[in-house]
Design a protein around this nucleic acid. Sequence first.
DNA 1: CGTCACTTTGAGGCTAGTCAACGGCGGTGG
DNA 2: CCACCGCCGTTGACTAGCCTCAAAGTGACG
Lengths: 255, 255
Amino acid sequence: MPFDASPEAFSDFHAAQALAQCELCPVQGCMARQGAASGFAAAWAGMLAPRVALMPGEKPLFTVGERPTALYSVRAGCIKTFTLDADGNERIRAFYTPGDLVGLDALGGGRMPASAVAVVASQVCVAPLANVRRLIAQRPELAERLLAQTSRDLASALCLAGDYTAEQRMAAFLLQMSDRLPSLNGHLRLPMPQRDIGSHLRLATETVCRTLKTFQRRGLLISETQGLQIVKRGELRGIAGVLYGVREVELKFAA
Amino acid sequence: MPFDASPEAFSDFHAAQALAQCELCPVQGCMARQGAASGFAAAWAGMLAPRVALMPGEKPLFTVGERPTALYSVRAGCIKTFTLDADGNERIRAFYTPGDLVGLDALGGGRMPASAVAVVASQVCVAPLANVRRLIAQRPELAERLLAQTSRDLASALCLAGDYTAEQRMAAFLLQMSDRLPSLNGHLRLPMPQRDIGSHLRLATETVCRTLKTFQRRGLLISETQGLQIVKRGELRGIAGVLYGVREVELKFAA
DNA sequence: CGTCACTTTGAGGCTAGTCAACGGCGGTGG
DNA sequence: CCACCGCCGTTGACTAGCCTCAAAGTGACG
């Protein structure tokens, strides 16, 4: 198969994603909220390098140890970042879906802390760091947005670093994905295989599978080929607990 | 004992820490490197609220769920951030030692994702967010520094989120602490009890203790009352692997 | 219709957690 | 000055959750 990830080559599903407008981009996203700063979007868009298409199995977007040269805004598809352990196994650090910024964890050091490849046919916008720096100097609000996004990533990474059971992790992961991925009337299609989910959540693929089955047996969801349907979102939230950003539980702590 | 954490009340050890100059502060830190921007340090220092003294067991620096109002630069001592799980157990998200910035993971959301208390008698500089924002508008390089620091925190949090053994975690933690804490000719004094270390590394306190003993039995370190001495730093690095930012191992991956 | 990657299921083992008990140290009060 | 108490660290025995290994089932695709 030739290297072809143009929108035409996408499935219907991905075509829908590709059509998502640039408001998805966290850098541009809050424009509407902030009103003003009308020239900002144009300034950001104007410094982007040409968009890049990525297919799974193709060349990585970047590789661990490289010098960081750009930030990447996911426009369609799904990107994963990972490192390899001593046995050559992937340790997936994060999945990035349309609207996410890839590369924020490299801004502090001189080296990429991970490699990045596409999980499915994907498109990313490339923002060269030199341009980003220049734009920051002109428009400090860009820095604030990047900072806010990095901060959110940090908060969720710190959460994932905690000690939670397989069910808690899976529940939180599914809820998160259903928030971030477009669902076609309730049917959620997970772009990554269970092996990747496990590698991200620190679970064996067998455990991922078994946990899904358990959830299904309890009627929390219906698993389908290459996807699933969440039935009892509330109960999943209860299982995920703190891992899913809901704060109702905190009232208990006062007691 | 009254609320008194003035330098005079500190032990010799903490007094030494308190004397650390403001170059520790990551916001000011790279001044020397960057040369130029001479007015920057003064601008930063000028907008700081009065320094705060904290004692363990006293009122938290901030509490989970609060609206973020400031960033905090640790000047002396040790601060930990944590949340409580359903059973009321602490889950320690991070330790902050002199030179660290606390609160970066709150910049993206409207709520503090954790509470913060002192582990030992500590002092922090308070940088009100309103002032920070104002200063960012004037001096974009501040945003870049905060971004770099947040990015580093993110990279290390993503690392800690991975699947590693008790020994790997402990080795990485000890190496990190020996980098960040002042050591008196090789003698490293850990400010936090083993229970806290375990809560941070997702290990039972018994496991922390056993792992330390194992390291000692192998001659990697000598554990002392309230501290330890690292003997074979190289071997500890080998155990920590990717968790400690050393990249030598990567050569193996090429094969 | 065969291949291949992914998913599913079962059996067994290991890491680290839990539970329980003890020793040491520092503070506190008689 | 010493007995007491509480926190912390230490050690052992047992347990549980999850991983490993193995093998069969399923779907996508050439």
